[in-house]
Design a protein around this nucleic acid. Structure first.
Lengths: 336, 336
DNA sequence: CTGAAAGCGCTTACAG
DNA sequence: CTGAAAGCGCTTACAG
């Protein structure tokens, strides 16, 4: 089990009877004669030679590493994104360096710099968190994926979250709900601001159209299961609880469904619940959540692609992609 | 956005008026005078200097990278493990390099070698998959975490899976079930073999004790949601379907619950379902799965610790930890 | 305690 | 097409 010394390009070169730089050339696609290439590749295959990434990124212009900043990996939302990103990156021969909430923002920033990432995809940017700005301040290309930051001119991709909120509102209002609550996402997250705005717009529009008043309570769920669970339990303990809930993401909607079950409140008979995201879990028969789908994997994919295009053309103007959302009616909502 | 040239230790040294090797020493804890240390750290702080990991791992004995091999990140089982591992590693100043099923085993092996990982934790080893053996063949320390491989003398940590299967059997038999099915995990996975063995032992023991025959059907679920879902739908379409199901992991139990719902089979009235793992999801009111808990985070933590101890003492005899499991009764099971 | 030097394993001009 | 050489940014003996 002593660390067997790794084979290096020098040894490959020696055994193939060529210069070390020639080995490098055949591996990186320089001009090499067929015969030389064949001879080198034979030795490469014999030892299953793998060039050192450390050496490569030390000398080269690129590390081949892309930073991906998420929050909590155990939130079912993120694995879907990470997987989609990994697929694209792996297809391009790139590696993903994950930064999660296991570390502080400062630690994450330091790591990304030490690793020499070629660029960073942020999936969880919030308005007052300067991490993305600081990374970019170090000259590292940044893209905002699924979240957006005001006054930060970088490549961004997001869903049409205002419409998402609007669709949720329209659905619940059409069902006749007039006493509703919104379980809000993280303060400072663009998605929370936009979904909230869309929902409120929908409510106001309905009021204007019907002349009927709609009661709308807003509580903070912080995009977090536990926070949302407690908030909904409190809501449901009220003397006049809402008849419908818009949760700004699916995870909080799961919390709402479970909190309702714990409180003995029947969904959808006594309480309608609408989520937002359409994470795969939402389609489970045991959950079957009415929600607004955002094209999660597509967002992840576009995010990575924007970064790759940025690396290819650093001076192109920043792009901002907005992807459409879609209402998904299932069984957690019913007429008031 | 031009890549601002990164500050190096040479520049820090120059500005602090010391040799580059002195900068290295203050950063790595060599002997340096207080005054020199102070002066260097001041410049380090001024530029927020981050030493290049590439250079460090090229010259040093360690890369500070630990490979972690999992299967599908979107299986709720793995994020829990990865997070627990990341916590331990980050506490030690180490980074995690994730290998998932987005790539082939060969590609994963190649990557791990190129990156020069100091060691690898396997969470999804299967008997006929030589990946772990091959990694180890390159002199890289390996630990098996949550799965075990026969005749492979490396550090291993697993739950007491035989007892897990036995507990599931005892519970269902006590409830009076005599027509059962087992949804089996991945062929070649030690957990599947052990849990299956424990369950069968329990059934045979009950038959011997009571003199009553117990019908036990076994179907393949491959530890996969979709595979298990289809298998359970087929089972339930039978003229004489089982009254109880033991699913060798929680994810397959979710599939069973959902398949039952889709088939209009009431759980637990018409069908009892027991899982295995106790992933956080299982405690949700909407799921509320009777299962056997294995100490997931603890397994992950011990796995990483075994590896770290191995790195500290390469010649210590291999260790094999077996962690206790615990029956968790919830509402997906009822008397036959 | 401190500095000068070697060297890790590559890529990339530069010659030929 | 091919080789010799420089150099990426560090750590680690080796002197003093």
């Amino acid at each position: 089990m002593a660390r067997r010394p790794t084979v290096t390009s020098v040894q490959i070169a020696r055994e193939a009877g060529v210069a070390q730089s020639t080995v490098s050339r055949v591996l990186n696609g320089g001009s090499v004669s067929d015969e030389t290439r064949r001879r080198v590749l034979e030795v490469v295959a014999k030892y299953d030679f793998q060039p050192s990434q450390a050496a490569r990124s030390l000398v080269g212009a690129r590390s081949g590493l892309i930073g991906v900043v998420i929050r909590d990996l155990t939130n079912p939302f993120y694995p879907v994104m990470v997987k989609a990103m990994e697929r694209v990156l792996h297809g391009q021969g790139l590696r993903l360096s994950l930064v999660t909430d296991v570390m502080t923002a400062d630690e994450g920033l330091a790591l990304l710099r030490r690793e020499g990432v070629d660029g960073v995809v942020f999936t969880s940017a919030v308005q007052d968190e300067p991490l993305a700005h600081r990374i970019r301040g170090h000259g590292i290309p940044v893209v905002l994926c699924h979240r957006t930051l005001e006054g930060f001119p970088v490549d961004q991709v997001e869903a049409d979250n205002v419409t998402a909120g609007r669709l949720a509102a329209d659905h619940l209002l059409e069902l006749g709900h007039r006493r509703m609550a919104m379980v809000c996402g993280l303060a400072g997250a663009s998605t929370a601001e936009q979904r909230g705005r869309g929902f409120r717009e929908g409510v106001r529009a309905a009021e204007a159209r019907t002349g009927e008043a709609v009661a709308l309570t807003e509580v903070d769920g912080a995009y977090d299961y536990g926070t949302a669970y407690d908030a909904v339990r409190t809501l449901l303990a009220d003397t006049e609880p809402p008849t419908a809930l818009f949760c700004q993401n699916d995870v909080m909607a799961y919390a709402a469904l479970n909190a309702a079950a714990a409180a003995g409140v029947s969904v959808p008979r006594e309480l309608s619940v609408v989520g937002c995201d359409d994470v795969p879990l939402s389609a489970w028969e045991r959950i079957d959540l009415t929600t607004v789908r955002q094209p999660l994997e597509r967002i992840a994919q576009v995010g990575v692609e924007l970064l790759l295009e940025r690396l290819a053309d650093p001076d192109a103007p920043p792009r901002h992609e907005v992807l459409p959302v879609e209402f998904v009616g299932r069984t957690t909502t019913a007429p008031a």
